[in-house]
Amino acid sequence: MIELDHLVKRFGDLVAVNDVTLTVPRGEFFAVLGPNAAGKTTTIKIVTGLMKPTSGRARVAGFDVQAHPLEARQRLAFVPDFPFLYDKLTPLEFLRFTARLFRMPENVVEGPGQELIARFNLGTYLGQTIESLSHGTKQRVAIVSALLHDPEVCVLDEPMVGLDPHHARVLKDVLKERSERGMTVFVSTHQLSVAEEMADRIGIMHEGRLIAVGTREELRRRSGTSGALEQTFLALTAQEANLREERALATTAAGGPRGS
C-alpha cells in the first residue's frame, strides 16, 4: 500500500505538492489526474524516492521511503514515461540485470518471466541490442523489467506513451490482474479513458493539492455532472480555480496579503 501523510514539497516559493494526505490500500488501482504542473510527477518522485519531501512522509508497503529506502524500493516498481535502458545490452541481459538487482534467482527471466515476455511479445527481440528497438518496444522492456520481481506497489507515470493499442490493452490487463492479486497500482495519466476504465479510485490534483478523491460515481456526484469522466474532471478543476480566485479577491478586499 501507499500512504502519503501531509506531504509538502516546495521549490523556493512555489508549493508543488501542498499538504497531500492519501492512502492507497493493498490491491487498489489508483489513478491520479490533473492538469499540467499539478504536482503529479513531483508526488511520484517523492513516492519512488527520487526526491525528498519538504515535510510530511511517504510510505510504501509500510516502509517510510526516506527512513527505510531499501525496504521500500525492494517492494516497489517504477515505470517512468521515458525509461532509461542500457543501449548496448539486449532485453534479455537487461531483464537478468534488473532481476538480480532485486535478488531474484537467475532463471526468473527464463522461468516465471516468460509469461510476461510472451504477453508483451518481446520474444523475438530478446537477442537484439536495445538501441535497435523502437520506442514502444523499449517501453515494453521497461514494463516487463519493472513487473518481473512481482512488486507489492507499482507506480507508473504515463505508461501508455508509445504503446500501440494492442500492447496498451495487454498492459491494462496485466495491471488489473496484478491488482486483483494484491499489487497496489498508482498511475499518473492524462488519458482519462485509462482512469475511467481501470481505476478503483481516482484522485484529482490541481496546483499541488489533492482536490478530490473517490470512485467515478463519487466524483461525479461531487462535481454535479452526470456524463463522462472528462466532464467531471473539467468541472472539478474549474471549481477549484474559481474557489482560489474568490479567496484571492477576498484577501485583496480585506487589505491585501500580509507582508512577508
Binding site: 542500457y86 543501449d87 548496448k88 545490452l89 541481459e93 540485470f97 538480480r100 538487482l101 531474484m104 537467475e106
Partner: peptide
C-alpha cells in the same frame, strides 16, 4: 522469491563493462 545475488556494485560493473566492450 529471493536468492543470494551478487552485490549491486558488481552488477553495475558487469553491465557497464559489457556496454563498454560492445
Amino acid at each position: 522469491m529471493t536468492a543470494t545475488a551478487p552485490s549491486p556494485f558488481r552488477l553495475l560493473l558487469e553491465v557497464n563493462l559489457r556496454q563498454g566492450w560492445r
